[in-house]
Design a binder for these strands. Structure first.
Lengths: 163, 163
DNA sequence: TTATTTAGGTCAGCCATATTGACTTAATTA
DNA sequence: TAATTAAGTCAATATGGCTGACCTAAATAA
């Protein structure tokens, strides 16, 4: 059984090769978040704050509900992080047209922090991609997209106006 | 300045495209860890336990020191997780040739859990890769590898005998 | 041979990020 | 008017990290 499976599996799909990908995902994700994490630590913030700042910066006038649906955490979890960001004036709240909702936008201070954090990751990715041709990059992007669950592909398309 | 930069940046390297990759990394990594996390929760373990089980399973007779150098956490952090795994007989400790060191191996129980957890991730990746050709897959693997910091590339090569 | 370094262990306390459950208020919609 | 929705809050709990201090035993260097 095991041997038959090995015979039928193309080399690039065998367990050993896939385990390498598992490890690369672990190592690369850890290295990917390291830069912003260090900056955040200095101002007593964490990765959760970066996520909030990132998506609020991306989508102006995001509501709490929409933000929760992207982050997929409970509102109690979001609450602490968001309150800190609002109290320290990185994020400004205003009432939406539907007066039950609130709109979130980055202040100037928030935009500056967002830029500082994301720039590290953008540069890191750009430096990597510069070493490769468009064929490789397309393979990377396509496969990464398909690694996302269907429900979250929809969410990704939504926030990138690919819907 | 900004305009000049945009003119000089190929379309696939512009900020918007790179931000999509940032988001895909976030979404895909979250979905990637979700399956094992659910199983681990039932037995009161977490992702940290999976990591330990994974690397102990990968590298027979791993020492504590080597494990720490892969995980890059403090020994105090590892301690709780590892003690639980040893107490509940997923991992067996033995004294190394250098009697200061300890060798870690998975018990049968540990191997079974490791398989159950990793199989989810392996299947997920295999199902994705099956939709793509070798050119795309190579692009994906190469770029993922380059996303890892140099020091950790060495670590990756070490544990995969590419050194 | 003694001194130092290394591998591993442990105690205590702290912080960040997440969870569940219960409950409230105000606004909108059926 | 009743039900639903968006947002907020209080409390308790779990996980996974961290720092600092300190210990033992074994190996290695001076």
């Amino acid at each position: 059984m095991a041997d038959l499976n090995k015979l039928l599996t193309p080399l690039f799909l065998n367990e050993g090769e896939i385990r390498k990908i598992i490890e690369l995902l672990f190592f690369s994700y850890r290295d990917f978040t390291e830069g912003p994490d260090k900056i955040l630590e200095k101002i007593n913030f964490g990765r959760a704050h970066h996520r909030v700042i990132y998506f609020v910066g991306k989508q102006k006038n995001l509501t709490i509900k929409e933000l929760l649906s992207i982050l997929k955490i409970t509102k109690q979890s979001l609450s602490r992080v968001l309150n800190q960001l609002v109290n320290e004036k990185y994020i400004i709240l205003s009432v939406g047209e539907d007066k039950r909702t609130k709109k979130l936008i980055l202040s100037k201070k928030g935009q500056e922090l967002e830029k500082r954090l994301s720039e590290i990751q953008i540069k890191k990715i750009r430096n990597v991609l510069l070493k490769f041709n468009e064929i490789d990059i397309n393979g990377f992007k396509k496969i990464l997209y398909h690694m996302v669950d269907d429900k979250n592909k929809v969410k990704f398309d939504e926030i990138n106006n690919n819907g």
